[in-house]
């Protein structure tokens, strides 16, 4: 558990730094790929609702601290989307590289709608057609494109986590899911 947490915290920090420095310099038409959303959605898909929500919260909180007008706004959006993505963990397959990409694209779409409502509509700017064409679709497409590559890297987490799980199970003496996500036990119940 501690190992996992450290790894995930490390990943969050790296993604945040890359997002605000490297990727803002790689922006196309003022659009930056949302690395933190890729991280949140993929971790939720790989490990489940719990991690998804927590990772989302951490990512959103970091964005709030530096660029948010109100603390907690991005944290709310990211943790909710992480939690929702966690439902897809039930159909997780470590060999599947297409579903998560669509999942990330969809999540990014929802996030941008949320952003539009919070930052444009509340200010009285309701020109959604312009926002869709100028910011939303480019951002979703750019994020999805980056996620094709990034998800492959993030999916290595799964093997890593499995190894940690196995090592721990060995030490504990046999129990297989003692500290796993609740989702796993839930899955077994459903079956």
């Amino acid at each position: 558990m501690i190992f996992k947490t450290i790894i995930i915290i490390f990943e969050i920090i790296i993604s945040y730094i890359l997002q605000v420095t490297v990727f803002t310099n790689l922006r196309l038409a003022d659009v930056v790929p949302d690395i933190l959303m890729i991280l949140t959605a993929s971790l939720a898909y790989i490990t489940g609702k719990k991690t998804g929500a927590l990772t989302g919260f951490a990512c959103g909180f970091l964005l709030d601290c530096t660029f948010g007008p109100l603390m907690g706004l991005f944290a709310l959006a990211y943790s909710t989307l992480g939690y929702i993505c966690g439902f897809a963990h039930k159909i997780y397959d470590s060999e599947d590289y297409t579903l998560p990409v669509f999942l990330i694209g969809g999540t990014e779409f929802l996030f941008n709608l949320f952003y539009f409502v919070c930052f444009y509509v509340l200010r009285g700017d309701i020109d959604i057609g312009y926002y869709l064409i100028r910011f939303l679709f480019p951002k979703v497409i750019y994020t999805t494109m980056v996620s094709v590559i990034l998800y492959r890297l993030l999916n290595l987490n799964f093997n890593l986590f499995e190894k940690i799980d196995a090592a721990k199970a060995k030490r504990r003496g046999g129990t297989t899911y003692d500290f796993n996500d609740f989702d796993l036990t839930e899955r077994k119940k459903i079956r």
Partner: peptide, 14 residues
């Protein structure tokens, strides 16, 4: 439970 706790924290923060 975790999610609802996080929601509450977020709303509190806002």
């Amino acid at each position: 439970l975790i999610y609802s706790a996080l929601l509450m924290i977020c709303v509190g923060l806002i």
